[in-house]
Amino acid sequence: MSVLLPAMTGLLAVAMLVAAAMTIVTRSLPIAILAAGAVSLFASVLFLLLASPDVAMTEAAIGSGLTTFLFFFVLGRVGGRDNG
């Protein structure tokens, strides 16, 4: 148990940093939105490891669920092309 928690935290940390880097680097807007949603999802697992189940639930439902869909609704309205 004492090894498992830091190991999982490290894994999540790497996954979140990669996803955040993708958000900035990628040319495609849908991929950036999905990567930001993935950052939120990994963060919600990290909150669970940090003994905060309430925050984990909120982040999973609101941060990664509803926010991503809001972005896609607006993206669908403005036509998905990337303006730089």
């Binding site: 955040a20 958000t23 900035i24 807007l29 950036a32 939105i33 930001a36 950052v39 939120s40 963060a43 982040e59 941060g63 926010t67 972005f71 607006v74 993206l75 403005v78 990337d82 303006n83 730089g84």
Partner: peptide, 17 residues
């Protein structure tokens, strides 16, 4: 660094997390 407003908002949500 981004010029597209939507990409700025996406970056803000990452900082929020």
């Amino acid at each position: 660094t981004n010029r597209n407003i939507l990409r700025m908002i996406v970056s803000f949500t990452v900082a929020d997390t």
